[in-house]
């Protein structure tokens, strides 16, 4: 059986597939394999955003809870998606909960390690920006559409 190195697994993720070998090796130093069982809490609102998760297998529910009502799933993420962006933005704290809906396999990048490498290599920092920003922009567009409550009843 062939064992895939972490750089190779990273290179298969849609966000990182355009990265060259050297950059992947650099990021590989911050990466580790992650596994969650269905129902596991991946992170909770207010937790330190010390990792970003690159989903390889399984579905994640991003939830927001209040004391008055049960948690609401506001978004689900799937293989190829990136879970968490608070690791890039001070104060580096998660603003929602993330729960494994099914068994999850992912690669995580350590936030401090990745930010440090980006600080040391502006080229790497710019490439991360180039490849993560479209993903985030798509998510913002989707959330805007959800805000419109498109399927609610129209006056008539």
């Amino acid at each position: 059986m062939r064992i895939h190195g972490i750089e190779e697994i990273l290179s298969e993720h849609p966000v990182f597939k355009a990265f060259d070998k050297e950059t992947l090796e650099l990021l590989g130093g911050c990466a580790r394999n992650e596994h969650f069982r269905a129902g596991d809490r991946i992170f909770a609102e207010g937790d330190s955003a010390d990792k970003v998760f690159l989903l390889r297998k399984g579905d994640v529910a991003v939830e927001i809870a209040t004391s008055e009502r049960a948690p609401i799933i506001v978004e689900t993420l799937h293989p190829g998606d990136v879970l968490g962006w608070s690791w890039m933005v001070p104060p580096y704290r998660h603003m929602s909960d993330a729960r494994a809906m099914t068994e999850i396999r992912a690669i995580s990048l350590g936030a401090v390690c990745t930010r440090q490498k980006c600080d040391e290599s502006p080229v790497l920092g710019y490439r991360m920006f180039q490849h993560l920003l479209p993903h985030m922009a798509t998510r913002v567009r989707v959330l805007r559409l959800q805000l419109l409550d498109l399927y609610g009843p129209k006056e008539g």
Partner: peptide
């Protein structure tokens, strides 16, 4: 567009 925790399907808009 949104769901309670019991929902096991996708949450997001059709374009996704």
């Amino acid at each position: 567009d949104h769901a309670g925790s019991a929902w096991t399907g996708r949450v997001g808009v059709v374009t996704t």
